[in-house]
Amino acid sequence: MKRYIHKLSMVLLLLGVWELVARLGVWSPHLFPGPFTVAKSLGAMLSDGRMAEATLRSMGRLFRAYLMSVGIGIPLGLLIARIAFFRNAVKPIVSGLQALPSICWLPLALLWFGLTDAAILFVVVMGSVLGIAIATEDSVNGVDPQLVRVASTLGVKGLRFQFGVMLPAALPGIVTGLKLGWSFAWRALLAGELLFVSGGLGQLLTVGRELMDVPQVMAVMVAIILIGITVDRVLFQTVEGRLRRRWGLAGAV
């Protein structure tokens, strides 16, 4: 409870300072609107449906790309962890490509896919799949050898071993990787959407800039922050917390 009061008072303080600075008129109110103006702009976008449409559009893309990333990343991580060829040959490539910021894939994506959704999806997938694969590999390699030994003495073998022992043992680590992958994907998505007419939240930002509508730009930024926090809190932290508690791991949130 105390934590929430602290948090809330900090937010209020920041909003107050923001409003104060805006009112002092150091910068033109067009360039530096106060929180009320921004909230009004946000309200307008919410009520005329622009925000909902853009959010839906962005989240739809994110969802598809993220599913692909998970679908490719987890098996890839498992292969790297379990099969020598993948460990020796594929892992260096994956680690190397991960050094490339995801937005650097965009020019290539535009040349390959044109100005389409596919280009953005490609960038998002490239931005998150490698991180998910590496986190999966890490958590599989980090499985307690004691559990592997006890499985062997209990005669747990084959698929029952892979899905009944290795997967659950690695699951907390994999979920952490999925969370990381999601935040990579979210960044890559917005970076991609900013760069061409895409109809998502990114474009709403661009439009705001083109119309010199600073309140709109700020309002969209606020919306992006709120969406990001919500997904992180509601989805990942809940799942991760539950999992860690059930698994009896220390530091459960």
Binding site: R149, L154, V156, P168, A169
Partner: peptide, 20 residues
């Protein structure tokens, strides 16, 4: 004890029985 931490006491036993 090397129990599977995600399974209950009963789950640990039934899982092993399944393998058997």
């Amino acid at each position: 004890a090397a129990l599977f931490p995600w399974l209950t006491v009963r789950g640990n036993i039934t899982f092993a029985l399944g393998a058997k």
